[in-house]
Amino acid sequence: MTVKTLTVARDLLATNKQAAEAIRAELRRRGILGVNLLSSPGSGKTALLEALADLFRGRHRMAVIEGDVETERDAERIRRKGVPAWQITTGGACHLEARMIGKVIGEVPADIDFLFIENVGNLVCPASYDLGEDLRFVLLSAPEGDDKPAKYPAAFLSADAVILTKADLAPHLPFDPERARAEALAIKPGLEIFTVSALRGEGVDGVAGFLVASLDRLRSGRA
């Protein structure tokens, strides 16, 4: 019986990375800015998208891919805003993978400006999976606590922007937005940090401005 040792040097996420690169190339070719939203469950990803849909109405077009373990609920909420939405139910899986997005991408209208991908609520696993996005947002809501960035560094490290949500609740909670901001910046200096209350519509314009500026950069880079 002969045993031989074989050098493999194969990245376990290589298949996902390839699928993600294909999606990124396709979105850039169409001039669409892809945005991946990560957060714990219930921190306001869908509410932020609803607020953006209201703000962008008549000015910019968007579409949403929703990831959840079960139910079509989030996609239904987005459709009620007149925005096309696709629901991916993972049936238990804790994150979205690029090939799941790849199956839907062909149905996304070519004439939109923004494609938002709302990941499964989870601050751990989704951080490892590139979905072919150009921007990654990590949301942190006031009730979760201001100490989360240091507890979940991989997610914050992978972010382009951090959005502190449910700002309307912060005065009632032991949540210090400055501490949350400082912890996030200690992990990744230069992060864009926004504070929003989707319920009151406050701060959403700042996020929208950042998205539009990023879209302009993407399209000018393409020309």
Binding site: T2, T5, T7, A9, S128, P189
Partner: peptide, 21 residues
């Protein structure tokens, strides 16, 4: 400085395997 670039620590790689004929 906090502007550091992470060059290792995020990998998930199959380095080698032993095969039996």
């Amino acid at each position: 400085s906090r502007r550091v670039e992470i060059v290792a620590g995020r990998e998930l790689v199959i380095e080698k395997i032993d095969l039996e004929a």
